[in-house]
Nucleic acid binder design. Sequence first.
DNA 1: CGTTGTGTTGAGCCGAATCAACCCCGGTGG
DNA 2: CCACCGGGGTTGATTCGGCTCAACACAACG
Lengths: 258, 258
Amino acid sequence: MMNRFKPRLAVWPVDPVLRKLNSLAKLSPDEEALLRAAAEHRERAAPGEEIIGEGQAAQRPRLVVAGWAARQRVLPDGRRQIFSFVLPGDVLGFTARPATASPWSVTALTAFETLDGQSVAEAVAAGRAPGLAVAVAAFEAQGAQLLLDQMVRLGQLTAYERVAHFFLELQRRLQVAGLGDSQRFPLPLTQEMLADALGLSIVHVNRTLQQLRREGLIELRSGVAILLRPDMLSSISDYDSVGAMRLLDASQGVKRPA
Amino acid sequence: MMNRFKPRLAVWPVDPVLRKLNSLAKLSPDEEALLRAAAEHRERAAPGEEIIGEGQAAQRPRLVVAGWAARQRVLPDGRRQIFSFVLPGDVLGFTARPATASPWSVTALTAFETLDGQSVAEAVAAGRAPGLAVAVAAFEAQGAQLLLDQMVRLGQLTAYERVAHFFLELQRRLQVAGLGDSQRFPLPLTQEMLADALGLSIVHVNRTLQQLRREGLIELRSGVAILLRPDMLSSISDYDSVGAMRLLDASQGVKRPA
DNA sequence: CGTTGTGTTGAGCCGAATCAACCCCGGTGG
DNA sequence: CCACCGGGGTTGATTCGGCTCAACACAACG
């Protein structure tokens, strides 16, 4: 509400990260400044570029400021499972152990942009940024929850329910990062990517989306998704009853009353 | 090799934990003694009993010494997804943050027995048990890998592949804990539990098992599974090519050369 | 003994995959 | 300017993996 109408200074690039982390724990002015300072070293990746390889040791920590990426695994015969999407506002490589091998590869799906998070990670490790430490820990916990939700989608939900559930999750995650509102959000995914995430064929994703549109529940136009009836989607997929929803809403709870 | 032939004193109850953790990092005699000392306070749970509730705060740390449990989530309409199985040798509740809510419930599937891990956890936290600290961390990493494998099973593998892949995983996990050998292992699961874990109907699990038996790949008798052709199962499910296999084998690698 | 839980089997159906076109659109280059 | 792509989306026809429903066998147990 406050600054959506005034993208004045071309907006700070760190904005999504700032919003996201602030929704997880109150950050001090110092901590916010620390994040803003990170805006120095940018790094870009092109669509299809592998940002972190599977089995590779932990990378330098990063703050995602623009673009989407996928955490995924590709089978020898070409099938691929996308475990989760990396969105603006997310952080990468902040979990301590530097020696551990990544259990998945992270691949850019669109033009992708990150900031160096080294200084931030050091401040957190040194105990100089307690708010950030809490936020990062909460972020990790939320990520774990989202993975379990994804598992429930794959194992128990029908195609129709899966898409509904997934769209609600995206809407909420993106809104927290300051992208999109309670109904509308950017969706730069092809149907193939959706298929690989939801464990469905491209054709069937297409037909399921059509059904949702036909029924007036969603609208898709040029990279933007609109949830016309979030309530319906929610009841279709039982979204509010289980899983990471609680965390995402708790996040908003922290943010809103301010 | 050393003590398998001499289950002399009715075997230490901590044995599975000892083996499992030792496979992840070399434990010092002190550390092993610490684990053995934990054998004091036992705790039992009956089948169906909920050991940790979803959303509940972290529990007292425990060492699992006997029985199976499931990490799961139940949907409002009764569908349930089992994320993973808790086996003897596993540890529960060792991850630091005491305030975090559990993202799943843990429910005993069989008679289930744990030891109090409080003293162990404290020693680890205080830095007095570096070997254990490494082992526990590795255990967590492996658990995360197993979750991703499960996700790939649900999202990409056929029923036939899922069962083959899953059986191989169980065989390896149990062997590390000293239960079963390279072909044979205890399998106290009903077909319903298998179905809920693998995202299949009971009937179809039944038929898939029959197919595997008919083809001479497995044998199931009174709570014991026998993998007659592990090699075939492996090629069916592409098991060795991806995922937690590497970790499980690495584990055995650490243990064997000793 | 009935009862209950687990496994097994058959029949039929349906959700989703596959195969195969075809359209549209934004390049790109002649 | 147009012809030619290639990627993404859409559609129909068909197949098939897996589900549902329903019955039955069997063992464990009170």
